[in-house]
Write a protein that binds this DNA or RNA. Structure first.
Length: 266
DNA sequence: TACCAGGTGACAG
DNA sequence: CTGTCACCTGGT
């Protein structure tokens, strides 16, 4: 167990940000965080102090990157001099970060996400993990499944995940993935356009879902997923499109906009 | 209880 | 290439 002081990290806000679906605040300021096949309990102690229930090596090897701790998020407060609305969103969403999450998990999760509420997405993913993920030590939940175990699932169990018409999108992707059609790690090296082009070839992945995968799985900070909430924000405050000056940070700005818009029902 | 949910693919025009 | 529409289910 290790303790750290970390600026600009609010796990509650991140847990509700729609970028991840397996962070649970089980009691006030106690977070159970599941990512890929890992589990971590983090306790927020107040005053930017955090207690991580893992050893120093695991923290350094995995979680520094997962929480994107090498990036300084205080800089974003300075990019909105004349933009009162964005300023408000950033102060409202203080502690938001773009996590570095598992690429396979992001693809499956965001294929599931289409036309579902965050709650419903969580339920589907939980069931998928429960039915075919490996049991994780020292907790009562399951790892995110791999392609093979998803395909080995019986029809009954797969149907019980409530995937609806997304089911065949997922099985198709898993089959192609197992055949080596996608090298998710190699895709890291591609330009945004090349990456998006490949992601968009996946059945069930359109522009919004591909953007989410690029941002949350490949950390493309200049890609902005536009969903109904962001569309409303852009229409209302920015003449319908992202201002050029924000393009470079569009991914994190999207998170601030999304968080504010959803919580305030803009 | 009906309606909608962080969209997408198929198909017109 | 832009517009329209059905689509599986779980939440509220």
């Amino acid at each position: 167990m290790i303790k750290k002081t970390i600026n600009d990290l609010n796990l509650r806000t991140i847990a509700n940000s729609g970028q991840c679906f397996r962070i649970y605040e089980i009691t006030d300021n106690v977070f159970d965080i599941y990512s890929a096949d890992k589990y971590l309990r983090v306790v927020y102690l107040g005053n930017d102090r955090f207690e991580f229930n893992c050893n120093a090596s695991e923290y350094k090897k995995y979680y520094v990157n997962y929480f994107d701790l090498k990036n300084d998020y205080s800089v974003y407060e300075k990019i909105c001099k004349n933009d009162k609305f964005l300023k408000q969103c950033i102060s409202y969403g203080n502690g938001l970060r773009i996590l570095n999450q598992n690429k396979f998990e992001m693809i499956i999760s965001f294929i599931i996400s289409q036309r579902k509420s965050v709650k419903a997405i969580q339920t589907s993913i939980e069931r998928l993990c429960f039915y075919c993920g490996k049991k994780i030590d020292n907790c009562d939940r399951y790892a995110f499944p791999n392609a093979k175990s998803i395909l080995m699932l019986s029809d009954d169990k797969l149907n019980a995940c409530g995937l609806g018409y997304r089911k065949e999108y997922i099985t198709t992707f898993c089959k192609d993935y197992l055949q080596g059609k996608y090298d998710l790690e190699c895709m890291e090296k591609l330009s945004n356009d090349e990456l998006m082009e490949i992601l968009l070839k996946i059945k069930g992945v359109g522009i919004k879902v591909a953007s989410c995968i690029a941002l949350f799985g490949y950390h493309r900070m200049d890609i902005c997923p536009v969903d109904v909430w962001i569309k409303r924000v852009l229409d209302k405050y920015y003449n319908g499109k992202i201002p050029n000056k924000y393009q470079k940070y569009a991914g994190i700005i999207q998170q601030y906009w999304f968080n504010y818009a959803r919580l305030n029902k803009i």
